[in-house]
Design a protein around this nucleic acid. Structure first.
Lengths: 303, 303
DNA sequence: CATTGCTGTTGCTTTTTCAGCAACGAAATG
DNA sequence: CATTTCGTTGCTGAAAAAGCAACAGCAATG
């Protein structure tokens, strides 16, 4: 398969060989065919590409220019065909995932590792952000799939899979709340609270929880990163409110304690895997979606 | 005239319009023709370039890649055709001249200025060097034409025009030699000489002049630039040996005095315009050669 | 619920383009 | 002086591309 015009390929070989007949031999075509392509090129360009010598053809200045461009195009073509070859069988060379931060900690790396064994040539583009930005990227096509918290339904977004994550108070093991058998939101207002900043707060699970009660927390800090929230909580400075996925690793290491908020009015944090509504996804993305769905479903029983 | 494969142009238009029929209308061809080119492309690449929606065609990931490459190629093509258009009628877009330093001072700028009015789109590449390097560049084709001093005849080089330049002693107006009505080489050995360095000396007119006499000069300095030689002479430090072209400007300003060496054994400095032996030159170069020939012939009477 | 208007797709025919063969003139070589 | 090698050119057949008309699928419309 050649993307370039046959005339250009002929030209390149003639320039390389300095002779029509030698080039024709290499190209496995008749010399007259090669000659005609060259003459046609020169006629259409209005510029002689070769000077005719008794021993063969020699590039003219215009021909030198042309040759340099063709060489560039041939390099481009090889590179393009290579990449398209990677895509063949997978549907795309790159899966673009927009996700909440907490998934990039453990779940996604493990999943992408397994996926990479099956599709070794597929690369990933991981972008983390808040729900709103994630939905926007999925809708515009900047991302193939999105994983976000509590998205509002939109006709442009298709929800593929979702799971209810436990939402609760997170404190250091030394914190008084850690000793309690169970914790309700009411119990937290006596302690300093480590909250997300205004931007993170908007649309968050915590916002919905607070909206359904009339409890006033006493904020100690507002952070724009979950990592910072967890660090402050780990230092015992106060109580944070996160879902259990956010603190999965710290729980395993015993650095933090998770206390589910068992208020009946709280429906918790919904993690949703979603894609663009109208689009048919490339094979590789489809496969990854399937694996993500399984992984997300498996998150549920842990609550 | 289009260099790109028709299939690629079709593809680009379909991607732009998002519809086969709209693209076909713009391309002034039947929709079926466009469709077949797209299908052929996809078949040969083994990758779907579009996803088929009920309302038209939408680029697949592979198609996005393809489109970006085609856009790049189209830009390349426009640029190339533009340059080739400049070449049409002139034979080349750039005249590469290898010359001795002295010509770049006055003669060449004036000449290239006139030439530029006639061929506004032709650029110049000026490389200065010594005779040996100039001949090498002309022979290898790195330069279209060369102007050098006293070249040895070579089968690979064709001498187009030459002129005998006055060769003589160059001193400051305050120098004792400046008062003499005429100067012979003998008269110079009493004064410090400002000479070219070993590399410049080799093959120079001065070398030949000295070889034909057995006069010993008393060198004060050896310089690797004519500019430096002239500066030292202008400062009155000694006597330099140059041709009158080297010091044309300083003579006009009265900063230096030129005393021709009228020894009968000295045949002087031969300035030679030359080109590669076998090559037929582009039109613009041919014209410039003609103007250069005239200009070089006009240098003669001044001796 | 049929209609209308899109869409891409496909057989078939015509037109155009391209490749192969053979031969020619010119120039360099032995 | 014959020979080889070069680019070039009619001519012929094959291959590719384009045009035409019709079809099936889907969405919006009356």
């Amino acid at each position: 398969m050649h993307l370039l015009l046959t005339g250009l390929r002929y030209f390149e070989e003639v320039a390389r060989q300095g002779s029509l007949r030698k080039a024709a031999e290499r190209l496995h075509v008749a010399a007259s065919a090669v000659n005609r392509q060259i003459l046609k090129l020169e006629d259409e360009l209005g510029v002689p590409l070769f000077e005719r010598l008794p021993r063969g053809l020699r590039l003219s200045p215009a021909g030198e220019l042309m040759l340099a461009q063709i060489r560039q195009w041939q390099r481009d073509e090889r590179h393009l065909l290579e990449t398209l070859g990677d895509i063949r069988g997978t549907g795309c060379a790159e899966v673009r995932i927009a996700t909440v931060e907490s998934l990039t900690d453990e779940v996604l790396p493990r999943l992408l590792g397994r996926f990479g064994e099956r599709f070794p040539r597929v690369r990933f583009a991981l972008r983390t952000g808040l729900t709103e930005a994630i939905l926007e990227e999925v809708a515009t096509g900047e991302a193939d799939i999105g994983i976000c918290m509590n998205p509002h339904p939109t006709p442009r977004i298709r929800f593929i899979e979702s799971v209810e994550l436990g939402f609760g108070a997170v404190v250091a093991p030394s914190h008084p709340l850690a000793e309690r058998p169970s914790v309700r939101l009411d119990d937290c207002r006596d302690y300093p609270a480590i909250l997300p900043d205004a931007e993170m707060f908007r649309g968050s699970t915590l916002e919905r929880v607070l909206a359904q009660s009339d409890i006033e927390l006493s904020p100690l800090a507002g952070c724009n990163r979950i990592l910072a929230i967890k660090s402050l909580a780990r230092a015992g400075l106060g109580v944070a409110f996160l879902n259990e996925l956010d603190v999965a690793r710290e729980l395993a290491h015993g650095e933090l304690v998770f206390k589910p908020l068992r208020d009946p009015r709280i429906d918790g944090a919904r993690l949703v895997l979603c894609g663009a509504a109208g689009r048919t996804l490339p094979l590789a993305v489809e496969v990854l979606v399937e694996e993500l769905s399984v992984a997300i479903r498996e998150l549920a029983p842990r609550t």
